[in-house]
């Protein structure tokens, strides 16, 4: 409980600083918290806020699942087959170092200004990262447990589910949490560049109107959604997957 108290206090202090800075600046470039919350409430009830949040969230989920799915499989394959890894590692490094903006622009050019292009662009930005993490995880698999599984002739599916995946779970969880943060940040840029809706689009519109209140309102709303995903889905999932470990105080 004390920890929750500290967190709440810290958050309140941040709001206090914001309020003080806004009062001192007294400019539309930095609206006070109350104005932003007022905008959020009004837009949620009568405006497009919820619709835009839902659209962006759907894109985040699609891109995230695509990046994780492909990234995990490719990462395991690279970790298991050193030959494949040597042959395709330069591709991976290249993709890893291609700027998000370039990937996005190219996807829009090659696939058109479509939903598919947006999701693929976001996924491609995240995927190499997942692959690198899972490759490390696969290289660290225990040869002893693998030998045990072979000795007892476990079916491939059992080996995957009971022997391999639990060992890879920390790497998957790490990739998922860092991935979610990266994906939702990139999604907004991708929306800004080529989608007629979503949080990124809304922010670009309000940017052109120089409506900082709305920009902050949209940003805070979406951050709240992503925090909820983190605390309500990712962390409980991780806690469940870690339940066998000795408790660390």
């Amino acid at each position: 409980m004390a920890r929750v108290g500290v967190k709440a206090l810290s958050l309140a202090a941040l709001l206090g600083c914001w309020q003080l800075a806004a009062s001192a600046a007294h400019s539309p470039a930095l609206p006070p918290p109350a104005a932003v919350f007022d905008f959020m409430l009004r837009e949620a009830v009568g405006g497009d806020l919820l619709a835009n949040l839902a659209i962006t969230l759907a894109r985040v989920v699609a891109a995230f699942l695509l990046a994780m799915g492909v990234g995990v499989v490719v990462g395991i394959a690279f970790g298991r087959r050193p030959g494949l890894d040597r042959a395709l590692d330069p591709w991976l490094v290249l993709l890893l170092n291609t700027p998000a903006l370039v990937i996005t622009v190219l996807c829009y050019i090659w696939l058109g200004l479509t939903e598919t292009a947006a999701v693929v662009a976001v996924a491609l930005n995240k995927m190499p990262n997942v692959t690198v993490l899972l490759r490390e995880g696969t290289r660290a698999l225990s040869p002893e447990l693998d030998e045990m599984a072979r000795a007892y002739r476990l079916a491939p599916l059992d080996r995957l589910r009971h022997v391999m995946l639990p060992q890879l779970e920390p790497y998957v969880a790490g990739a998922a949490r860092s991935g979610l943060a990266l994906v939702w940040k990139i999604v907004l840029v991708v929306e800004l560049l080529g989608r007629p809706d979503g949080v990124g689009y809304a922010i670009s519109v309000y940017f052109q109107l120089f409506d900082v209140r709305a920009v902050l309102g949209y940003a805070l709303s979406f951050m709240a959604v992503m925090l909820a995903v983190e605390y309500l889905i990712l962390q409980p999932f991780e806690a469940h997957a870690r339940r066998w470990r000795p408790a660390v105080s």
Partner: peptide, 27 residues
């Protein structure tokens, strides 16, 4: 069927004692 006991127990740390045993049984 062959049963094997290694020098170290080599149990799956993320499965309970019973699950560890069940896992090696035929489906």
């Amino acid at each position: 069927p062959m049963g094997i006991v290694f020098q170290e127990p080599r149990l799956l740390p993320w499965r309970t004692v019973e699950e560890n045993i069940r896992l090696v049984l035929p489906r």
